[in-house]
Design a protein around this nucleic acid. Sequence first.
DNA 1: GTCTATACACCGATAGAC
DNA 2: GTCTATCGGTGTATAGAC
Lengths: 171, 171
Amino acid sequence: MAVLRQQGYDGASLSELSRATGLGKSSLYHHFPDGKDDMVGAVLAHLEQTLEADLFAPLRGDGPPAARLRAMNRTLDAFYDHGQDACLLANLGIGESSRPFHPRIRQIFARWIEALAAPLRAAGLSPSVARTRAEDAIARIQGAVVLARSLQDSTVFARTLRALPTELLRR
Amino acid sequence: MAVLRQQGYDGASLSELSRATGLGKSSLYHHFPDGKDDMVGAVLAHLEQTLEADLFAPLRGDGPPAARLRAMNRTLDAFYDHGQDACLLANLGIGESSRPFHPRIRQIFARWIEALAAPLRAAGLSPSVARTRAEDAIARIQGAVVLARSLQDSTVFARTLRALPTELLRR
DNA sequence: GTCTATACACCGATAGAC
DNA sequence: GTCTATCGGTGTATAGAC
């Protein structure tokens, strides 16, 4: 996962994946018979599990909406290492949309949007407003990671996370 | 440029660049002796010129601030093909920050931020507020492109552009 | 389940004819 | 300035021993 999020699909060579995992190429093919696409699939499956447990479930929880948004922030701050680490979804989703894993990228983003809309509805916002705000918030997070990495300055990432809870709940 | 923005640095093979330009590999090396890095440099130089003329100069112009922001929107809407095309800066900037072209990516983003802050200062915002709003706006644009491409739905891109002028000038 | 050794295609890059 | 032909290296993927 670290190699993929950093180097992207084309940059993540089997040699790099072999080095990073400590397994020889043949061992990788033993575990992932369909090759690199298979490895990407396993990484995305693991990511889905992680996000479901650490991000989506807390968002859908039944606590106060503001607390659920702060929980998202804590998870994201760790996940992106304060804006210093790239986003795997963005790196894989930004390229060609014809890749076999692209539908799964799309689905993960869709689940994130739906999970984030939940606390906004719970705070009294209409379903349509909750949804558009959730989309905009995730776009802001993604853009903040891109810009923080490009500028090599994570200020914009920290500021974006800090502003989100109050702005999302504003009436 | 089209190949690079779509496929990224590692995905943009010389065969693809040869096909896209209609030149053989040797002809490409005649024009770009240092190979792919040289070609990326030329693409970035061309992008800088284009952005300077179509994006930064209009932002720095002396018309009403709102009109300058609307001019940026028109340029971006065409540049990203209504949110359907990837961003070259994002695709090259999201990966390893040790690449030789990364400082130029950083510089182009920095110039964009500075150019966008100008009309905000002209509208009476303090320099520090103008700068942070400019950074946030560019992050939102980048994130909107990432999300629009990942979801294969450009709604979020159109909505982001539409909201920017008034939100940026809000006091 | 891991390894060494290898197959073959494509990579970036070069030589040299025209 | 473009081409064909080719280089050495690396890419993904496989065979087969242990």
